[in-house]
């Protein structure tokens, strides 16, 4: 499963942008705060040179990745416990369901109150929100691993650790990867949201400040950059995961 942009895939958005530009120049579209693409590009160049655009991008990217990494570590541990132990699952699945369905955005003001408008607050909420899909994904992946593998493990007298690391987690990897992508997306959403409502840093802050300043062209620059960051992180991490985990290359689910 290789994914590449091809010319046909790029043609549609390019045409849409061209149409957008033309419609505004022809004064067919006349919203006060809808800038033409050319105006957005100009604002982007300006922000890049004088407005700390790169710093904002790096901040959001770094916090997103940090929150996601923390979430992954915690989720791998919790998900493994839930996936392997029926007892652990029985005692905690109800709590997991409640915690998981609580919309993390509701916790943004709470975190801002507790930790102040800081990077720590962003990381905390984003990591919390990003962990749940992975907890569920790891647990479900482990439970869906072929039971036969356990017979194989017993036959060859493999240690418990080896069963988990060499048989079950690799077998669960495709499901875990799907959950990890979801969780990365959630991490980015929550980081940007926290920046918008609380912390004066990053791309989210850029969006919110330029909204208040009635600078739609600059605001669009930040919005598009958030989109690009999401796509970019996915584009970098997916092939990296495939390269690092052989069971993702196995051509079919284990």
């Amino acid at each position: 499963m290789t994914r590449r942009f091809d010319a046909a895939g790029l043609a549609a958005p390019l045409l849409a942008v061209a149409a957008w530009e033309l419609l505004i120049r022809a004064r067919v579209l006349t919203f006060t705060y809808l800038p033409a693409p050319s105006a957005i590009v100009a604002a982007g160049r300006d922000l890049l040179l004088h407005g700390g655009l790169l710093g904002a991008l790096l901040h959001t990217a770094a916090v997103t990745l940090l929150a996601w990494a923390l979430a992954s570590a915690a989720a791998l541990a919790l998900g493994t416990a839930l996936g392997l132990s029926a007892t652990a699952a029985r005692f905690s699945m109800a709590s997991v369901e409640v915690l998981r369905t609580l919309p993390a955005v509701a916790l943004v003001p709470v975190a801002l109150l507790v930790a102040g408008p800081t990077t720590g607050a962003e990381t905390m909420v984003a990591a919390y929100a990003a962990a749940w899909p992975l907890v569920i994904g790891v647990a479900a992946g482990l439970r869906a691993a072929p039971r036969r593998l356990l017979d194989v493990a017993r036959q060859f007298e493999l240690s418990r650790t080896r069963v988990v690391l060499s048989l079950l987690l690799p077998a669960a990897a495709p499901l875990v990867l799907a959950a990890a992508r979801l969780s990365l997306g959630i991490s980015l959403i929550v980081v940007v949201l926290t920046e918008m409502v609380g912390t004066p840093q990053g791309l989210g802050a850029g969006i919110a400040e330029n909204q208040t300043a009635l600078r739609p062209d600059a605001m669009w620059v930040y919005v598009l950059l958030v989109a690009a960051l999401g796509a970019g992180l996915n584009a970098v991490l997916l092939p990296a995961a495939r390269r690092a985990v052989p069971s993702l290359r196995a051509g079919r689910a284990a």
Binding site: D151, V152, P170, S247, L248
Partner: peptide, 21 residues
């Protein structure tokens, strides 16, 4: 308990082999 001296070949090779190895 299982021992090296008696080894089972399972019916469903599709599930008993590790597809990523």
């Amino acid at each position: 308990r299982p021992t090296d001296r008696v080894i089972t070949v399972f019916q469903d090779y599709g599930q008993a082999l590790l597809p990523w190895r």
